[in-house]
């Protein structure tokens, strides 16, 4: 029986215009459509595959505001069994350190986890470090940026793929895994799955339930703080020519003029 916890984040859709609030530089959640981060669906898929290959239970863990329940339901409709949702206004503006500590605290709500699976990097913050930070706090191995994963008993093997190439990793459970886009193709929720998801248990907890230091949470507790944020002026279109047989030459002349060649 493998107890798997999948970390799920609700993010602004990358197809919509993403903004920060002018007042406190936090994410403007109203301006963009909110969706489950695409990479999380692959994390859920990988957890379901492990469960289906043997025995196990898949718990979704999400830290986010109330409306993040949509992301949780999506994961449950794919086939996850239950969920823990950490929702607390005190978390607004939290940095990565606080986020990792809250997730570590919330894992205590899941009865004996063996494996945590996350996406390698959220599409909004792109910090790419939360799974590693979580492993650091929990004192377990990180097998991150996995493009392939195999579990044999309690031995976990992962092919890690990054800009440096492929690294073969091995560790024993419990462990933290993060997956890349190449790990799998996530399933679509079936109608039955969507209906069943409505009845699956979602435990909502607050910071007070987790035993984390409130002094590290939210905007006021953050180690990293934003001083300024502003939209960049959009790039203006420059010169444009039609190719009349000399388009390549004209491009070369432009590059010479810019001292680029």
């Amino acid at each position: 029986m493998t107890n798997i916890v999948v970390l799920v984040k609700q993010v602004p859709d990358t197809y919509s215009e993403r903004k920060l609030n002018e007042s406190d530089h936090t994410l403007d959640r109203e301006s963009a459509d909110a969706v489950i981060d695409e990479i999380n669906e692959r994390a859920v898929e990988e957890a379901l595959k492990i469960k289906e290959a043997g025995e196990g239970e898949v718990t979704v863990l999400c830290v986010g505001p109330d409306r993040a329940t949509d992301a949780i339901r999506k994961a449950l409709s794919m086939g996850a069994d239950k969920a823990v949702h950490v929702s607390d206004e005190a978390l607004q503006g939290s940095d990565m350190v606080a986020t990792a500590k809250v997730i570590a605290g919330a894992l205590g709500k899941v009865d004996g986890y063996d494996l945590v699976i996350a996406g390698n990097e959220a599409s909004d913050g792109r910090g790419g470090a939360i799974p590693a930070m979580l492993a650091e706090i929990l004192g377990v191995p990180q097998l991150t940026h996995a493009r392939e994963l195999s579990l044999d008993g309690t031995t976990l093997k992962v092919d890690r793929e990054t800009e440096d190439g492929v690294t073969h990793l091995e560790a024993s459970l419990p462990a933290v895994v993060s997956v890349t886009e190449k790990i799998n193709e996530p399933r679509y929720p079936s109608f039955k799955g969507i209906m069943a998801a409505k009845k699956k248990p979602v435990e909502t907890v607050t910071v007070a339930d987790l035993g984390v230091d409130a002094g590290e949470l939210g905007l006021s507790g953050a180690y990293a703080t934003v001083l300024e944020a502003a939209p960049k002026p959009p790039r203006a279109a420059g010169e444009r020519v039609d190719d009349d047989g000399d388009g390549g030459t004209k491009a070369a002349e432009y590059l010479v003029g810019q001292k680029l060649i």
């Binding site: 993403r18 903004k19 934003v226 944020a229 960049k232």
Partner: peptide, 14 residues
Amino acid sequence: SIFGGAFSVKSKAA
């Protein structure tokens, strides 16, 4: 430079 270069941010350690 975040959101694919759409926003410029200045931050520091508090």
